[in-house]
């Protein structure tokens, strides 16, 4: 556990050193948020039928998405791990006195946590300070806020366990970056990164609700906005836990299998 903590601290110090990078990132994401809000604003201006979410809810959704981008983006890749796998240097990693699955999992979580910590606070403050209608709003209730926090972290873990599966699959077939690019862009659509899931046609919504991607993005954010009521949110957290269990167990088991193969084949 201590090792994981120091990985986290190191990352944070590393990130803080690059103040200009952090500032630039905040500025970029702020602009991104404003831009997307304007697009929705324009759509809402003469909407033919009643949209599935209020404009305010969409605005909150967008600000959360920008603030926690590092938390929820599927495309963030850890090149160190990829290099370990593709170069065959994984043997060194096997020498460490802890399980690779646990270690990588912690590392990936630490990376996203430290990345988000630096950026989300300034961005949220900025979003709360700007004038209406772009202003960020508080959650509907304390319960909603608490559930949002819980589901955001569980969502992060779901996301990391999915990316663990991607890394593990790279052992078996050296899947090049190309297929990962496709995978993450499809995953992004189904997670609600591109548009919130209620805006999708109903047939696509069914698929999206079936897949785990939306547990990391669409669900926590809509819990915050109150679009998903507290009672449903509790159910959602339960679903997250189930998915998380399944994903981690699958990942852990396949990692074991793969490790055996690596040892037999000698990398």
């Amino acid at each position: 556990m201590k090792a994981y903590f120091s990985v986290f601290k190191l990352r944070l110090i590393y990130g803080l050193q690059y103040r200009a990078a952090a500032l630039a990132g905040v500025a970029t994401q702020f602009f991104w948020g404003i831009m997307h809000i304007m697009i929705y604003e324009a759509f809402y201006a003469n909407a033919a039928s009643a949209p599935p979410m209020s404009l305010k809810q969409v605005i909150i959704y967008i600000w959360l998405q920008q603030s926690f981008l590092v938390f929820v983006a599927l495309w963030i890749r850890d090149n160190e791990i990829i290099n370990l796998i593709t170069s065959g240097n994984i043997a060194y990693e096997l020498c460490r006195p802890c399980s690779i699955y646990g270690f990588w999992f912690a590392k990936l979580i630490a990376q996203r946590l430290s990345g988000a910590m630096l950026r989300c606070l300034p961005l949220l403050i900025a979003a709360f300070l700007i004038p209406e209608p772009y202003k960020m709003a508080l959650p509907g209730s304390l319960a909603a806020f608490l559930l949002f926090t819980v589901s955001l972290f569980l969502g992060l873990m779901v996301l990391v366990s999915i990316s663990m599966l991607i890394y593990i699959s790279m052992f078996i077939t050296i899947l090049p970056v190309g297929s990962m690019v496709v995978f993450s862009s499809i995953g992004e659509l189904f997670s609600g990164m591109i548009i919130p899931i209620p805006f999708m046609p109903s047939w696509l919504q069914k698929i999206a609700y079936f897949l785990p991607f939306r547990l990391a993005v669409d669900m926590p954010f809509r819990i915050y906005t109150g679009h998903i009521p507290v009672s449903q949110a509790l159910q959602g957290v339960l679903i997250q836990l189930i998915w998380l269990g399944v994903l981690i167990l699958t990942g852990y088991a396949s990692m074991k299998k793969v490790q055996k193969r690596v040892i037999v084949q000698g990398g």
Partner: peptide, 13 residues
Amino acid sequence: RRSSGLRQAVKSL
């Protein structure tokens, strides 16, 4: 000038 440690890093922000 760059210094080490978390506190120094925050300061240099």
